[in-house]
Amino acid sequence: MRVLVCDDEQLARDRLKRLVEKADNVEVVAEAANGREAIEQTQEHRPDVVLMDIRMPEMDGMEAAEHLSKIDNPPAIIFCTAYDEHALQAFKVHAVDYLLKPVSLSDLEMALSKARTLNRVQLAELGKEVSEEKPRRRGHISARTHRGLELVPVDEVRYFLADQKYVTVCFSEGEVLIDETLKDLETEFGEQFVRIHRNALVALRYIEGMELATAGHHQVRLRGIEERLTVSRRHVAGLRKVLQSL
């Protein structure tokens, strides 16, 4: 069994690695200091299990688990944390197990045994439920591209544009497609984005203004992109009110 150890504290990672080495037929193939690194290392080393801390800088374990569920052949997640109030939420993202620090060898071996019994089909099903529940607001949007799982910081997103089944995410470095609904994105990120059309959400932080285009149609200008996005007539008044309050 291939294991990735993820914790923001080096001493905690070292202790977990020593415990893993004492277990039978288990090896540590990589380590990470936060959720984002865990995703990168998972795609490179393809572990069977990720031992994941919850409270970490840049991206915490809960969000990382949600993103990891979207990759092909996702690993089993076992949370290792000192904060037992996270237990309920951990199981909402369908972790295989939840271990309180300091982790004992016996508890670790039981959790690894449980992970070993799960096949890839079952893990994929857990991942599907993770993506449907969306327990809280993410800091990143994840998209499956030819490069693997690509992470886009929400703070860098200019707009979400719906087109039939997919949504285009325009951000500082380009565009990606995601298989999510505009309605769900609006519910999750409504404080950061405003709807300007039935098929478009734009980031409040990048709006420079609204202007009148030809034939009485309005458009919105966004900092950092030349493209103008159409504002539907039903959303003009609402957008104007939002802009006045900024």
Score class of each variant (00 low, 15 high):
4 L>K: 04
54 I>E: 01
68 L>W: 06
38 A>M: 00
94 H>E: 15
60 D>K: 08
160 F>V: 05
83 Y>F: 13
3 V>M: 03
23 A>F: 06
109 E>W: 07
185 L>F: 04
67 H>C: 02
146 H>F: 01
23 A>E: 11
233 R>Y: 01
235 H>W: 11
149 L>R: 00
228 R>K: 15
49 V>W: 02
176 V>M: 01
27 E>G: 09
134 K>M: 13
18 R>W: 04
227 E>Y: 02
33 A>Y: 00
241 K>Q: 13
122 Q>E: 15
132 E>P: 00
175 E>C: 09
204 L>D: 00
213 A>D: 13
186 E>R: 12
93 V>N: 07
121 V>S: 14
148 G>S: 02
71 I>C: 08
181 T>E: 08
112 L>G: 10
242 V>R: 10
211 E>L: 09
200 A>Y: 02
23 A>S: 15
226 E>P: 06
130 V>E: 02
168 T>C: 04
93 V>Y: 04
16 L>H: 01
229 L>H: 03
209 G>N: 03
146 H>N: 13
2 R>P: 06
29 V>E: 06
51 L>I: 10
79 F>D: 01
146 H>P: 08
231 V>F: 04
43 Q>W: 01
88 L>M: 13
226 E>Y: 05
72 D>I: 00
28 V>N: 06
21 E>M: 12
192 Q>K: 10
5 V>N: 07
15 R>A: 12
55 R>K: 12
122 Q>S: 12
118 L>P: 09
35 G>Q: 05
149 L>E: 00
145 T>F: 06
33 A>I: 09
166 Y>L: 11
215 A>I: 12
121 V>N: 12
82 A>V: 08
147 R>M: 07
36 R>C: 05
119 N>M: 02
33 A>H: 02
8 D>Q: 03
56 M>Q: 03
169 V>Q: 09
41 Q>I: 02
47 P>G: 06
69 S>Q: 01
134 K>S: 14
192 Q>G: 13
187 T>Q: 15
145 T>S: 05
26 V>I: 12
222 L>N: 08
186 E>L: 10
3 V>D: 04
214 T>C: 11
42 T>Q: 05
171 F>A: 11
88 L>Q: 11
136 R>K: 14
167 V>I: 14
59 M>V: 10
9 E>V: 09
149 L>C: 01
177 L>E: 11
240 R>T: 11
102 P>R: 05
189 F>E: 02
55 R>I: 08
27 E>V: 14
179 D>E: 13
246 L>T: 12
120 R>S: 14
46 R>V: 12
144 R>F: 00
180 E>P: 03
6 C>Q: 00
215 A>R: 14
106 S>N: 14
152 V>S: 10
13 R>I: 06
32 A>Q: 00
72 D>M: 04
85 E>F: 03
37 E>H: 03
35 G>Y: 03
226 E>C: 05
46 R>A: 15
146 H>V: 09
48 D>E: 13
